[in-house]
Nucleic acid binder design. Sequence first.
DNA 1: AAAGATATCGAGATCCGATCGCAAGAAACG
DNA 2: CGTTTCTTGCGATCGGATCTCGATATCTTT
Lengths: 147, 147
Amino acid sequence: MSSEQTIAALCRKLGLRITGPRRVIMRVISESSDHPDVVELHRRVVAIEPTIALATVYRTVSLLREKGILERHTFGDRRARYETVPREHHDHLINIETGDVVEFQSAEIERLQEEIARQHGFTIISHRLEIYVKPIQKTRRSRQSGE
Amino acid sequence: MSSEQTIAALCRKLGLRITGPRRVIMRVISESSDHPDVVELHRRVVAIEPTIALATVYRTVSLLREKGILERHTFGDRRARYETVPREHHDHLINIETGDVVEFQSAEIERLQEEIARQHGFTIISHRLEIYVKPIQKTRRSRQSGE
DNA sequence: AAAGATATCGAGATCCGATCGCAAGAAACG
DNA sequence: CGTTTCTTGCGATCGGATCTCGATATCTTT
């Protein structure tokens, strides 16, 4: 999702009407590189156009999610956070000591997931893999290469 | 978590009072091999002792979670589901159409995770892998419009 | 065993994120 | 322009989870 004309084009492609609120909401989303929740999105939206209702933001994000434009995450808390769908799927290594997040991809793991799902008679809709880690300690012995 | 005496012992060990409601709730949990949410737990609990309140079940499960006895999952929906901390780690296939959860293990995936973590200079503390799936459809052929 | 201290309970109120219903307003299309 | 259908704003409502509080039960102390 990107600039002004493409938002209109996107709406048209999705069969959605091009409305003022949607223009603003989509623009805010496209300019957000973090993972805002709906209230936060609404905050940013009303900073531009104060009349836009919270419910409209809710409706728009779920619409965009249905259409595959947005991804919904639910981290620790119970509020949903949104992110534009990355063009390449990735999973996360979370450093529990620092909170840092490292993205990674593994075609091999993806393949194994497909295999497991198929063995159970399912097809994968989506998945979530989070690996909680800490830095390797160097004890008396081995050091690690790389990194 | 297991039979009657061990529940008392467990409570004592955790510094909790051994009460009627707790006995029942813990028994229900120990006898559940699925991933019930709190309302479902309460259903099973009141089948044994109808006077036990939903709030008590909420309080008990969060207590047991704090103490490391239970694991809390939040799959697709917004409700928390609980399971006793397994002695062998497993991951979950979640059928998004029915909400059913299938447990699985994959030594291969675990191995790859270890490898990825190591390549980034980390050791794994824990991880979470959830695969959201739906049953394999038969022929998906010409469909009319929309959606 | 009785009593005091306090953790726990049940029931309903409350919180908070998310959704709904409806009348008014706006887009699309001719 | 006028009609049709979609969208919006607003308040009501939903649903899961938590909290309040008086009553009760458990543990501890004697």
